[in-house]
Structures are given as structure tokens and as C-alpha cells.
């Protein structure tokens, strides 16, 4: 009898291993969104995360604001000075916007890659599994979020939606980007430098900007923005600043390391970016539904 028991345990063990390995293989292959039961599970967990997040966040904010009070006076002085410039700047911007609209109307351009609408969302949870660098936001398909939309904060781009459930969505942060999530990018003010932001160097905490054209003109300190050519991201979302330029491991091309503009560790409020000019991929999906 004991030998039978042991055999049974061994069989359960082996079958378990085989199941798990095939499960890993299956989920490595499939990247086309989550199934309905998975969406349900994610939404249910997201609902409770939301309940827990709201009071806790309130508590944390009280602590934060006590710390803020110390620096308020100094900030106030600086801000007052900056406000003077701001008024002039705001006036100039509104002038330029009207001029831009008039010129567009003359040229009969309806919408460009730069136009987008944003949808505000709060980050309710972060994947405790820090290898994946994903956060959960409290907006989903019901609110108009679709997979592959860009996600930004006021400072700059933080990532993209990789999976939209009905009420919550999962956002892949830039710090977890690999070659499977490439962002087509240009250097601000110089369209001749074009490349792909692919991957994140976790040792230096910088984004890797490679496949560059016009790499000789690239300088440190230049701003890198999205190009809008990738399909769903609009043009002109700030990704970061070039912090160093190095030769790649073969010594043939250059690789730039980009310091992300947004703080990827401490994110609480984000904006989901919905480009006005939809790519064909998203339009097709909408027609199917």
C-alpha cells in the first residue's frame, strides 16, 4: 500500500509539472488579450483593490501633505515669479492655437497625429511581482480604454495599456518594456533622428533608444518624444531626455540611453491617451464589436 501511495504522489507530481510547463508555453504564445473568465477575475480583484485603495490613499496623502507644508513658502515665492512669465506664455499659446486652427482650416487638414483626448484614471494597485512592472488603473472598456493606448502623466509617458477589462485595465510601464513593446520615437525639434525605444536597462534605470537614423547629430540632453508612426500613440508625448550615447556591442551603430521624464516608481494619477486619428487596427476592432 505505501508503494502505491508513493506512486500516486509521483504521478500527481509529474502530471502537475507537465501541466504547468504547457501552461507557461501557452501563455507565452498568446498575446491577444485576456479571455472572459480572466477579465472577470481581474475586474473582481480590481473592485476590491479600489475599495481598499481609496481610504488608504487618503491616509497616505495626509502624511504627504504634512511633509509638503514645510516647503510651501519657498515654493510659493518661486511660483509667484514664474506666474508672471506664465501669463505671457498662455497668451502666446492661445494666439498660436487660433493661428494653427486657421491655417489647418485653410489647408483642409481635419486631424493630425498630434491630436488626442485624454481620460483621467487613478492607479489602484501595482503588480507586487516587480519583474513585470505593471499597474492597474480604475478605468476599463466601459470608459473607453482600449488595449495599446498610451498612458502618460503630466511629466511624460509612463507606458501603455496592455490589457483592458470591463472596469479596470492593466498598464505596462516603460520600465518593463522589452523588444515586444517598441515605441517609435523621434528627437524633439529634429525629425531626421528617428529610432525605436525598445527595452529598459534595469542596472542604470534608463530606456534604450536604438535603430537610430541620423545618429551623428544626436546630442546629450535632447528630448525624445513619440513619433506617432507606431500606430496608436499620438505624436509628441515626451518620453525622456538623452543621458548618454554609446556604441552598441558590435561597435557598428550607436545606442542612446534615455532618462524617463516621468517618475515610474511613484505614480498615482495617469491619463490614458486616445488618439483622434485612429489606426486601422483599432478601427477594425471597433467594427467587429
Amino acid at each position: 500500500m505505501p508503494s502505491f501511495l508513493r506512486k500516486r504522489k509521483l504521478i500527481v507530481f509529474l502530471v502537475g509539472i507537465i501541466l504547468v510547463v504547457s501552461l507557461i508555453g501557452y501563455s507565452l504564445r498568446s498575446d491577444s488579450g485576456e479571455s472572459l473568465p480572466a477579465q472577470f477575475a481581474i475586474d473582481t480583484v480590481g473592485f476590491f483593490q479600489n475599495i481598499l485603495h481609496t481610504p488608504l490613499n487618503y491616509f497616505v496623502e495626509i502624511f504627504d501633505s504634512v511633509g509638503d507644508i514645510k516647503s510651501v513658502y519657498e515654493q510659493n515665492q518661486v511660483l509667484k515669479e514664474e506666474l508672471q512669465d506664465y501669463k505671457t506664455l498662455a497668451y502666446q499659446v492661445s494666439e498660436l492655437e487660433t493661428e494653427n486652427e486657421e491655417l489647418r482650416a485653410m489647408a483642409e487638414v481635419d486631424s493630425t497625429l498630434t491630436d488626442y483626448e485624454t481620460l483621467n484614471a487613478a492607479v489602484v494597485a501595482r503588480s507586487p511581482e516587480r519583474w513585470f512592472q505593471q499597474v492597474t488603473i480604475n478605468r476599463g472598456k466601459q470608459h473607453g480604454v482600449e488595449a495599446n493606448m498610451a498612458v502618460r502623466t503630466a511629466e511624460g509617458m509612463v507606458g501603455k495599456v496592455i490589457n483592458a477589462s470591463q472596469l479596470t485595465s492593466t498598464v505596462q510601464l516603460l520600465s518593463g518594456f522589452g523588444t515586444e513593446h517598441q515605441v517609435s520615437a523621434i528627437v524633439d525639434g529634429d525629425d531626421s533622428i528617428f529610432g525605436l525605444v525598445e527595452g529598459y536597462d534595469s542596472d542604470t534605470e534608463k530606456l534604450v533608444f536604438r535603430e537610430l537614423t541620423g545618429e551623428d547629430e544626436l546630442e546629450e540632453g535632447q528630448a525624445v518624444v513619440t513619433s506617432g508612426l507606431g500606430g496608436v500613440f499620438p505624436r509628441g508625448i515626451l518620453i525622456g531626455e538623452v543621458s548618454s550615447i554609446e556604441l552598441d556591442s558590435y561597435g557598428l551603430t550607436k545606442v542612446a540611453y534615455v532618462e524617463p521624464a516621468a517618475n515610474l516608481q511613484d505614480i498615482s494619477q495617469v491619463m490614458v491617451v486616445d488618439r483622434d486619428l485612429h489606426s486601422t487596427v483599432i478601427d477594425e476592432e471597433e467594427e467587429e464589436e
Binding site: A125, P128, E129, T136, Q265
Partner: peptide, 29 residues
């Protein structure tokens, strides 16, 4: 178990990582 499961993810969001740990990461299990 479910309460701990939900709490650990919310805790991961609300406790800023780099603030006092530098490049050290902890994963709540």
C-alpha cells in the same frame, strides 16, 4: 488569503519604492 492578496498589491502601489530603499526591491509574498 484574499484580503492579504489584495492588500499586498495596494501596498506595493502606495509605498514608494525608491524613497528609502534605493535600488533595492522587495516583493510581498
Amino acid at each position: 488569503m484574499f484580503i492579504f492578496f489584495v492588500t499586498q498589491s495596494v501596498a506595493a502601489e502606495l509605498i514608494p519604492q525608491t524613497f528609502w530603499l534605493g535600488s533595492l526591491y522587495y516583493i510581498p509574498h
